[in-house]
């Protein structure tokens, strides 16, 4: 273990704000840590908390959830629902023995490419400091609805 630990972060983005913020960061050539891999949802309200658990169980060291600022949701108020679920999820993660700092909710409007980039780099550093997530994969993954393809090992 001489090499620096490089965490893998899964980022869930809203199609209308934070995904566009990521686009904007790209267009403006704002640099951020390459450890994050984004998934586009239509809205942060689409985020099923099991997505986060599944990500952590499947090898991600951290998860970033992003949505429109309060009051600016493209679907009026669904980001509030994401926020409620997020707080419950954080509590649950703590009960499960996962550091709550591995999961973070960030508001980023379509105009906030710089902010999103900064938040990504910050989370990567925070998760790096926490170290790898030693999720007891075998037990929990079995409890989750496992996708057969996920466990398939090619010849």
């Amino acid at each position: 273990m001489t090499e620096a630990f490089e965490p893998v972060i899964i980022g869930f983005t809203c199609n209308w704000c934070s995904y566009r913020a990521a686009d904007l960061a790209g267009t403006a050539r704002v640099k951020y840590a390459p450890n994050v891999r984004l998934i586009r949802l239509m809205c942060s309200g689409r985020l099923d908390p099991t997505f986060v658990l599944k990500a952590l169980a499947s090898g991600a060291d951290g998860v970033m959830i992003t949505g429109c600022h309060p009051g600016e949701c493209h679907y009026l108020e669904q980001n509030y629902k994401a926020m409620r679920r997020y707080h419950l999820l954080k509590r649950m993660l703590a009960q499960m023995g996962v550091e709550p700092g591995r999961v973070k909710l960030v508001w980023a409007s379509a105009a906030e490419g710089v902010r999103l980039a900064g938040e990504i780099t910050k989370l990567v550093e925070e998760v790096r400091a926490l170290g790898p997530l030693n999720w007891p994969t075998a037990g929990v993954a079995a409890a989750l609805p496992a996708k057969p393809a996920a466990l398939e090992v090619p010849a």
Binding site: V8, I10, I39, K54, A55, S58, G59, A149, E152
Partner: peptide
């Protein structure tokens, strides 16, 4: 969403 996540985490390799 979940299969994209598996792919992003290279669980399919």
């Amino acid at each position: 969403v979940l299969s994209q996540m598996e792919g992003l985490l290279l669980r399919n390799l």
